[in-house]
Design a protein around this nucleic acid. Structure first.
Lengths: 227, 227
DNA sequence: AAAAAATGATAGTAATACTATCAAGAACAA
DNA sequence: TTGTTCTTGATAGTATTACTATCATTTTTT
């Protein structure tokens, strides 16, 4: 089994967490703790305690918890991006390609074939991205963070999928808008199914991922006239 | 000109901010300050300073800033809900009704005819809802808050619109899901246009509200087979 | 005029989000 | 092998936040 290294550029950290044992522990444990506590109650002090290190040591890797979250979400999107690249080798029909992309984005099971040096629990990471990733940009510092290039991972992914959409329907006017809408919806609808069920028909007692997939495919195909 | 009183039930506050002058100042100023600082940097201490009162006094009205945000977002959704009720008197064709609803949701100018005893800047409130409202539910306390009934305003609105969708196309399987998706999208796409333009075709240098409207209408009508 | 309610003033606490300093141990190079 | 550098740990300290509590004063109600 091959080990994939997703390269995260250095603008995300002060010291590369992938370069040391402590760094890898920070990544692995932060995913767990974020999943458990949520971003608001997650602190570097608690993280330090959980890996038997110190606050000061963690601050040597990441400027603050926002940057750490940015690192983790970027890792997630880069990895989805990578999975898409691989699958695209096996499908050339743009309609099929679109279907496969939506599968990768929605199904937990599509994620498993990934292993990083700091072996991260991917279900946890997905839950963290689902619940916390919007907070990376819904802040007064968006423009600043954007200038530093820290939303690159998400933007690249969005653009990659938009190109497939242009391929399938060159007349459609909103390829990027529909991609960003549906990427967000994929997380939101799953979240609603679990916590605010009256906002969606998707039923958590059924096959949640499958239902989200059906909803997204239906919306996308109708919108792009692919039926 | 008639003054509309939107009733916000008492579960949102400790003391009704609409019942006193100080309370109205709290509401009015909190919208301004939230717009200016963002939720993370907004504190009751700063709010107290801005209205020349004290932290302790504000805590007599609201348990904490999350509850205050919940109050404000509910005010916003209730008011959209109310505007829809009015407009529905003038339109009986469900397709037209849908169009009018999307207009209310997207266009700033549709909001103006509202005046509350604590005269709130509606453009500010809309910006606050756009940027901060997701944070009311993206938290570990969702279920608890939901049990208290504090998402009622948003859920009621979503259901009201879903009924119109069922009216226009009884065979469509996801009325609530598409409504929650597009309500979220209406804010997100405007936010992206302003801060992360590569995620959308919507152009802030053009008529932003109008373009969001076009995108939503297109997506909705295609999805529901209304063309 | 008395009672009750609302507000202000002040103080205090635990937790958060850092920054700084110094010592100890590991790795690595000459 | 010794010396140097790099990494981590230990500890301390600061400003701010998110509250809670108490008591005095002002305003409103009866």
């Amino acid at each position: 089994m091959s080990v994939v290294q997703l390269l995260i550029p250095e603008k995300y950290f002060l010291k590369d967490p992938n370069s040391t044992e402590l760094g890898k522990k920070i990544i692995k444990s932060s995913v767990q703790l974020l999943d458990e506590l949520g971003f608001e109650h997650f602190t570097f002090k608690k993280l330090a305690a959980s890996i038997e290190s110190t606050e000061a040591s963690i601050y040597r890797y990441f400027e603050n918890k926002q940057k750490l979250l940015l690192y983790l979400t970027t890792l997630y999107w880069r990895w989805i991006d990578y999975l898409i690249d691989i699958k695209m080798h096996y499908f050339s029909d743009p309609k099929e390609r679109l279907t496969e992309i939506i599968k990768i984005v929605t199904y937990k099971s599509e994620l498993t074939s990934f292993s990083e040096s700091a072996d991260i629990d991917l279900s946890s990471l997905k839950r963290v991205v689902m619940t916390e990733s919007d907070k990376t940009y819904l802040t007064k510092q968006v423009d600043e963070i954007n200038k530093e290039g820290l939303f690159r991972g998400y933007k690249d992914l969005c653009h990659k999928i938009a190109l497939v959409i242009e391929d399938v329907n060159p007349d459609y006017a909103y390829p990027h808008a529909i991609v960003s809408t549906l990427l967000e919806a994929s997380h939101q609808q799953a979240f609603f199914a679990m916590h605010l069920p009256s906002l969606t028909e998707i039923d958590k007692t059924q096959d949640l991922d499958g239902e989200v997939y059906q909803f997204l495919i239906h919306t996308l195909f109708k919108t792009l006239n692919l039926d």
